[in-house]
């Protein structure tokens, strides 16, 4: 396949993925908007009023970036894990496997679908957040780059989960038992400076902390972590995830006999 044909194959996978989650918008777009609205109402307005300020900002303004990024993370991840697993389950992954589409285009295509869903739902949640927060952007470049890179990382992670998954249970184990705890402990609801020194050290091993802090910086200009450290962690993680996902698809793990 030449470059132009590969580009067409990539676009085809992305369009297919886009149409898939748009077709089921009641399952993919609406629930995160409702859930995030509830977060804002409960943690922001009802409880947040009693908490007072965090790092000099209203609590609801402090948690808003983390909630938006949490949506980006879960949506980009769940798009690829569900889509890849269903493609295996219904065997229509074979449509791609028998075609001359290179393995890396398959990875890019599925990841592209996950990124688009993460960003679209992230935007929708951002719009919702405007009704509850004093919305401001401190650094648009950091905002866009962090959102896209984070979505890329978790879309790739979703593909890996999708490759390994053998049952429907397998696609919810990682999000439930690993992703959600890491996200909640990644500083969405608090600054790690509030934690004892020991737990601060432990928190630094959580990669999601770096993403949330970079994203929060893009909105309100404060972060517990160096911005370069955040970008470094995200980029290294993307390279590792991409390499592993490509290896799995190339060797046909869980796809070829």
């Amino acid at each position: 396949m030449n470059a132009s044909e590969q580009w067409i194959a990539f676009k085809t996978i992305v369009i297919k993925e886009f149409l898939r989650f748009i077709r089921i918008w009641k399952q993919t777009l609406l629930p995160p908007m409702i859930t995030t609205s509830l977060y804002f109402i409960i943690f922001g307005n009802l409880i947040g009023g009693r908490i007072g300020q965090m790092e000099g900002y209203r609590y609801v303004d402090f948690i808003a970036p983390g909630l938006i990024l949490m949506t980006v993370i879960t949506q980009s991840y769940s798009n690829t894990v569900t889509s890849f697993f269903l493609a295996k389950f219904q065997r229509h992954i074979e449509e791609l496997m028998v075609s001359p589409t290179p393995d890396y285009i398959i990875i890019f295509g599925y990841a592209g679908g996950g990124i688009i869903r993460g960003i679209i739902v992230g935007l929708a949640v951002t719009i919702v957040s405007m009704f509850f927060t004093r919305f401001s952007v401190h650094n648009l470049t950091v905002l866009i780059s962090t959102a896209i890179l984070t979505a890329t990382l978790f879309a790739l992670a979703g593909i890996i989960n999708g490759v390994y998954a053998k049952t429907f249970d397998d696609i919810s184990i990682i999000p439930t038992f690993i992703l959600t705890p890491l996200t909640y402990l990644g500083g969405i609801f608090y600054s790690i400076s509030l934690l004892p020194e020991f737990w601060q050290g432990i928190s630094l091993a959580n990669p999601i902390l770096y993403m949330i802090n970079a994203f929060r910086y893009s909105f309100i200009g404060i972060t517990d972590i160096s911005l370069w450290a955040s970008y470094g962690i995200i980029l290294v993680s993307i390279i590792v995830m991409y390499g592993y996902a490509t290896y799995l698809v190339k060797t046909g793990h869980g796809i070829r006999s």
């Binding site: 369009i15 074979e94 449509e95 075609s99």
Partner: peptide, 20 residues
């Protein structure tokens, strides 16, 4: 081995796309 929820025209068009 196709996505049962996709319209058949879309299945065909996607397949062509995989071949560039």
């Amino acid at each position: 081995n196709f996505n049962v929820w996709e319209p058949i025209e879309e299945i065909l068009v996607n397949q062509a796309g995989y071949y560039g």
